[in-house]
Design a protein around this nucleic acid. Sequence first.
DNA 1: GAACGATTTCTTGTATCCAAATTATTGGTA
DNA 2: TACCAATAATTTGGATACAAGAAATCGTTC
Lengths: 238, 238
Amino acid sequence: MQERLYSAPGCTSEERFGEASAAGETLGERMRRSLEQDIARGDLAPGARLDEKEIAERFGVSRTPVREAFRLLAANGLVELRGRQGAIVREIGVNQLLEMFQVMAELEGLCARLAARRITPAQRAMMSDIHARLEAMGEENDPARFYQINLEFHEVIYEASRNDFLAEQTRSLRNRVGAYRLRVTYLPERVRHTLKEHAEVMEAIFAHDAERAHAAMRAHLTLLGDDLIDFIAQFGKE
Amino acid sequence: MQERLYSAPGCTSEERFGEASAAGETLGERMRRSLEQDIARGDLAPGARLDEKEIAERFGVSRTPVREAFRLLAANGLVELRGRQGAIVREIGVNQLLEMFQVMAELEGLCARLAARRITPAQRAMMSDIHARLEAMGEENDPARFYQINLEFHEVIYEASRNDFLAEQTRSLRNRVGAYRLRVTYLPERVRHTLKEHAEVMEAIFAHDAERAHAAMRAHLTLLGDDLIDFIAQFGKE
DNA sequence: GAACGATTTCTTGTATCCAAATTATTGGTA
DNA sequence: TACCAATAATTTGGATACAAGAAATCGTTC
């Protein structure tokens, strides 16, 4: 049946499913969001098989919206649909993960470059604040919270880029590698590096130095890629 | 009902639907591809409404795979689904189109950069050949063919990048702006520019000069963006 | 005659049903 | 006991049926 390697501390996906149902939103869409979060949070481990019937019953809906959600997730690359063999949470190979990082580094770099030219005073303040919060928690060893604030930092840059399409693409890609990032980003020695790199990106943006912002952001993510290699190598698996 | 502003010279989408059905491929997937092509080719004009029942009957399937295709197209941003109001071919605003070009320039730039480092002799030869063909047709004034060969040129670079994920993302994005490109790219004075820019990209790749390849490709697409602005301004529409 | 409103029709969203395919099980044989 | 085959059971893909919401039409009223 369905496997849960470890369950999140927060709430179950069924609960999340019930809350905050935007009017006019389709069941399939809500299903997608819920499952997407489960995958991103790691509640559904890569390789786990998703059973239409079981999930439909668990959420109290018919198979139709579940099927819809599966297709959407597959379109986003989060699950793999093999004909008549069900949906499994996509096991991202090292190769593809590195490929994705490379693309992401480029997109985030573009975000930073545009942000350097277009950031508003309000966003500037917000960015400072977020960075300060991230710095403040320093050695607290709260990976989930660190991850969350780190996300906010990048998010404000997406918005400052004033390119909604780019923001959406980058967000989607980040979400897609999210499950892996959680395990990768939080290595104690990484925290200091991250803070320093963020500071450099922020400085460049504040100075309206587009090229430097671009380079700094790319370096930030490329480093993550290198660390990723270490992490993977540690397990010695394909 | 459904509007067709102008029909393509080739074949109807129903015919295309029938041909070359890869084994194990789902109906919904085939529907998606067919509709996607219709949109990219302009057979389905932006703003046109897609009727589930009508399309289902036209292709001789039930509504289920049609709905599936709609969701997939929506996930790719080609159509818009407004709750219980059907699917309409997405009317891309100038703003968003420019945003997309900006992202695409970055992605294609990355393709070129990687290609400069990784291209194989076989791909090199193919690239030369494609470029020669494009040059040969020069003033022939055959937009569809020009568009096709131009596509091949970019495609070989995607493949030479040896980053499947990047290739897929770029391909998808190019397809998405395809409908507009067809009308934009082919302005007589543009052809010469395109050829010259292609030559520069190719030269840089052949010289394994990653940075120059990147820059040349970005410039190539950015120029297209500028032309696009001209094109839009011509119509004075939002 | 025009505008507003109720009703009817049509279209989409969801559930159920059927068929096809894959997987598991069981029986037999080497 | 291990392996193969045939069959049963489960599961997905697609079609149909039903419900709910949106749009259009027709009637009424000002």
